[in-house]
């Protein structure tokens, strides 16, 4: 099982900046257009938590309209890192489902697919990257039933 190391806001921002391309769109933030201070502020506004799992950063933010659902993000295709995050959310946040908004072609797509997420549609021209608009795909995952809540 991959270990998750929780990052404080400053380390989270620095980590996303170093992750470069893979961190663009991570929970909706973008280290290319936003500096560390802005990233920190944006993540705080989302009440987001960022973890390091090996070379990958994973993160989650609660859905304010449904406390049992979490938005999740990852900087890589590493399935184990994402699984560790989902395990954390089920165990310590009692999450029952997850949503991920991922740019078309992003590395994290592969990890989501392997973790049983399903594609639920595409937000057209949702972000601007390197001079062109890109679609953002909506992925949904269901937590395995552990015990009756």
């Amino acid at each position: 099982m991959t270990d998750l190391i929780p990052l404080d806001p400053a380390s989270a921002a620095a980590g996303l900046r170093e992750a470069g391309e893979g961190a663009r769109g991570f929970l909706g933030v973008d280290p290319v257009t936003e500096n560390d201070a802005l990233l920190t502020r944006r993540l705080a506004a989302l009440d987001a938590q960022v973890f390091r799992a090996g070379d990958t950063l994973v993160g989650a933010a609660p859905n304010p309209h449904q406390p049992r659902q979490a938005y999740v993000a990852s900087t890589s295709a590493d399935e184990a890192a994402l699984r560790a995050l989902l395990g954390f959310l089920v165990t310590y946040r009692r999450a029952t489902s997850y949503v991920a908004l991922v740019e078309r072609g992003a590395a994290a797509t592969e990890a989501l697919r392997r973790c049983g997420f399903a594609e639920r549609g595409a937000l057209r021209d949702h972000r601007h990257r390197s001079g062109a608009p890109v679609d953002v795909l909506v992925w949904f995952g269901k937590a395995a039933e552990t015990c009756p809540s």
Binding site: V32, T33, H128
Partner: peptide
């Protein structure tokens, strides 16, 4: 100068 122009145009739109 060129790199900064490119960044402001392509990334900041």
């Amino acid at each position: 100068v060129q790199a900064a122009h490119d960044y402001v145009r392509a990334e900041l739109n």
